[in-house]
Design a protein around this nucleic acid. Structure first.
Lengths: 125, 125
DNA sequence: CAGGATCCGAGTCGATACTG
DNA sequence: CAGTATCGACTCGGATCCTG
């Protein structure tokens, strides 16, 4: 049996799943996978994100060793974020989920329509 | 480029990631992967879950075609939930993340301690 | 430019009570 | 047994203001 104590949330798998479930974290990982970026650069790229969430998510990612932070003591201060090798491996793991999504997208959508049409039947709202 | 419109949340990948990030959904999938279960049976097994979340999560999973629901018109009503083939494929995809977690758990933990020790330095709380 | 601190609305979840 | 409906506690996330 390969799942030890999954039922009391302390299981390490949960940490990973939480990260993966985090919208912004995945997006950031995605962007940084293409190359290092600065704070406001990231902010502009993602755009939907607030400064708070960006900062917060970056800190989490940095804490987990998934992204690296490098500060340059220039005049207005320059900070560069980059993905770590570890982060890269996670990203490729997440990619397998992306693959699942793309592969089974049709089946899920079909199931949803079947469900909504069969039980809900009130599409007027 | 294999990631089309990931930035405006409509992308199907998000749906999958949200499911995977859902604590209860994964747990339910895990339990049902071992065999069909009834509502209260699931509730007892997971135990930390409220009936609201269980019911709600089951409905989501059913809607996505990941679990199946079968009601028997017995006296006190019997409902049996089971994982679908589709759900099984998702579960095995999630398993690859579990694998990642187990493999890199040490690295993540080390990074966290490094981070907490280096910047936070208040371990007394 | 990079980010901390705060306020606050919206959504989430659990506990409870009730139904078929 | 298998749920639904409601309410309150809490958390999350966005907007804003401010600092170095």
């Amino acid at each position: 049996m390969h799942y030890p104590n999954v039922f009391d949330g302390k299981c390490p798998t949960r940490v990973v799943l939480d990260r993966v479930g985090d919208k912004w974290a995945v997006l950031i990982l995605l962007l940084l996978a293409a190359g290092p970026l600065r704070f406001n650069e990231l902010r502009r790229r993602i755009d939907g994100i607030s400064q708070k969430m960006l900062s917060q998510t970056l800190k989490s990612l940095e804490r987990d060793g998934l992204v690296g932070r490098k500060a340059f003591a220039t005049v207005p201060v320059t900070v560069e974020y980059s993905i770590t090798p570890l982060g890269l491996t996670l990203y490729s793991a997440v990619d397998s989920l992306r693959l699942w999504a793309e592969t089974h997208l049709g089946e899920v959508a079909a199931a949803q329509q079947r469900y909504d049409g069969g039980q809900g039947m009130s599409e007027a709202a």
